[in-house]
């Protein structure tokens, strides 16, 4: 379980986080959604010991991330935004190194590597140098590496950034599979559909503050079920309706052009902040 209380971080005069508080339950798949620079990565860096908070507290399964740093780190696995595998080493060597850093016995490391490579469907690339892998394969290896020491919490920082849609969906399936095994997942993303597809609860982060937090369904239901994008007075506006029938009743008023679609999390974000997640 993750508990964050009034977490704040200031970098060279810029407030990256402004008193964020939230809780993520055990086994939950939680998405942290926001535009670039909203504070998503900063939160993950503080929770995983890569950054020091200016104020506030955070606990991972009861271990304070600063005061009980080593125990807190043992609770979590991190898949950072940048690919940070050792390019000169093979897939297995990268996983072995991670196991050593987490003080796993050699025998256990070997068995776990075979299990994880099977899990991410890359067993045949066990002895391939990382530099020979595609971007999607490297992401999967990073996920396997983060799972080496069987963490109770997995932090995924933009795990599908820059990947094509087919590979992205493959990563989503893997993330779902990991959650089904009981691991808590804390995911940051700026892909709306990723949060909608994966998350049980979503927090919207904007300029270092949480501006909305609920399940995707509840957040979207707050606006309605259908959205109609219309052009009025030269500007595009979005109207929300509870049902398709209600929306159709408005069609005649907007003969200038409209499109009807289901409400999504982007609509929620825009309605709360007035901004788009992806500008």
């Amino acid at each position: 379980m993750i508990r964050i209380e009034k977490l704040a971080k200031r970098f060279k005069g810029v407030e990256a986080l402004k008193g964020v508080s939230l809780r993520v339950g055990e086994g939950e798949l939680f998405a942290y959604l926001g535009p670039n620079g909203s504070g998503k990565t900063t939160t993950i860096k503080i929770l995983t010991g890569l950054a020091v908070p200016t104020s506030g507290d955070a606990w991972l399964h009861g271990f304070h991330v600063e005061r009980d740093g080593l125990q807190a780190k043992r609770q979590c696995g991190l898949v950072p935004q940048n690919i940070n595998l050792d390019n000169e080493l093979t897939v297995a060597e990268n996983l072995h190194l991670h196991g050593k850093l987490f003080q796993m016995p050699k025998k256990e490391r070997g068995a776990k590597i075979s299990e994880l490579l099977d899990y991410i469907e890359l067993s045949e690339r066990r002895d391939s140098p990382v530099k020979s892998l595609s971007g999607g394969m490297r992401r999967r290896v990073m996920i396997a590496r983060a799972l080496m020491h069987s963490p109770r919490i997995l932090f995924l920082d933009e795990p599908t950034a820059g990947l094509d849609p087919a590979i992205r969906r493959r990563i989503w399936s893997l993330v779902k599979k990991i959650q089904q095994s009981g691991t808590t997942i804390f995911l940051t993303t700026h892909y709306i559909e990723e949060a909608e597809f994966l998350a049980e609860r979503v927090a919207f982060l904007d300029e270092g503050r949480i501006v909305a937090l609920d399940s995707p369904q509840s957040l979207m239901a707050g606006l309605g079920a259908w959205a109609m994008d219309v052009i009025a007075d030269g500007e595009m506006r979005t109207l929300y309706f509870r049902s398709r029938e209600e929306a159709k009743g408005q069609v005649s008023r907007h003969e200038g052009g409209f499109s009807l679609r289901r409400v999504n999390l982007e609509d929620v974000f825009i309605s709360v902040t007035g901004k788009r997640v992806l500008p």
Partner: peptide, 13 residues
Amino acid sequence: WHIFEEFQAAPIR
């Protein structure tokens, strides 16, 4: 390579 992050996130002093 950003590998330093891997060391920082590991439970080592």
